[in-house]
């Protein structure tokens, strides 16, 4: 078996065994398959792309073909332990609404996204004066599906505004490795950010 990607392993370490997971934009279902195998997790993936839907069916991952921009109204409150949004936040039409929806249907949320505050991104925009293109963000400005890019700091501010309590966060590089510099200055050296959060308890 191929060693699991570090982001998968981080998410796997975060979730409790036997959890119910909803994976938004689940792609080929590899995260859910990994969580099922390593953590005994069960649940569903939501995916819009028909090729991915077929891949999920082929690997035995429950998948529901749907458009995330249409919301999660089909799911009842608190029907999952975790709702995961992996590298998809930046591509949805209303990230703030989707975060609220995640914490309606799930007890906790897990989000991963490409960090627009990474130094290479800043260099391309700040010094070269061009929209950044990188391994984590491979598209040109005119054809990118990534319409809502943010930095770690931006995400933290949104969480604060939405009364979302961040429980854990980590950063990795585009090859999903972790290095010391990323731990020290995550918003500068982290290419992909991972957050686990829940609705803040009102004191």
């Amino acid at each position: 078996m191929i060693p699991a990607r570090i982001d998968f392993r981080i998410i796997g370490d975060w979730i409790q065994p036997g959890s119910r997971v909803l994976d938004l934009g689940c792609g080929d279902g590899s995260l859910l398959a990994y969580l099922a195998e390593s953590k005994g997790a069960s649940g569903y993936g939501l995916e819009i792309d028909e090729t991915h839907v077929e891949e999920c069916v082929r690997r035995g991952v429950n998948v529901i073909q749907t458009d995330l921009d249409a919301g999660l109204s089909e799911f009842d409150e608190r029907s999952f332990d975790y709702v995961v949004l992996s590298l998809t936040l930046q591509a949805v039409r209303y990230p703030d609404r989707l975060l609220r929806e995640m914490l309606r249907v799930g007890t906790e949320g897990i989000v991963t996204f490409p960090n627009f505050g990474h130094w290479r991104t800043r260099w391309q925009l700040g010094v070269l004066g061009r929209m950044p293109v990188s391994t984590a963000l491979p598209h040109e400005w005119y054809n990118t599906p990534n319409i809502h890019l943010c930095t770690l700091r931006d995400f933290a501010r949104l969480c604060e505004r939405e009364q979302i309590e961040v429980l854990e966060s980590q950063v990795v590089d585009h090859a999903h490795r972790q290095r010391l510099a990323q731990r020290l200055l995550p918003n500068l050296f982290g290419e992909i950010a991972l957050y686990r959060f829940r609705r803040a308890r009102l004191s």
Binding site: R20, E50, E54, C56, V57, V61, N62, V63, Q65, T66
Partner: peptide, 8 residues
């Protein structure tokens, strides 16, 4: 909580 997949 049943296993279900949906394709449109």
């Amino acid at each position: 909580d049943l296993n279900v997949s949906y394709a449109e």
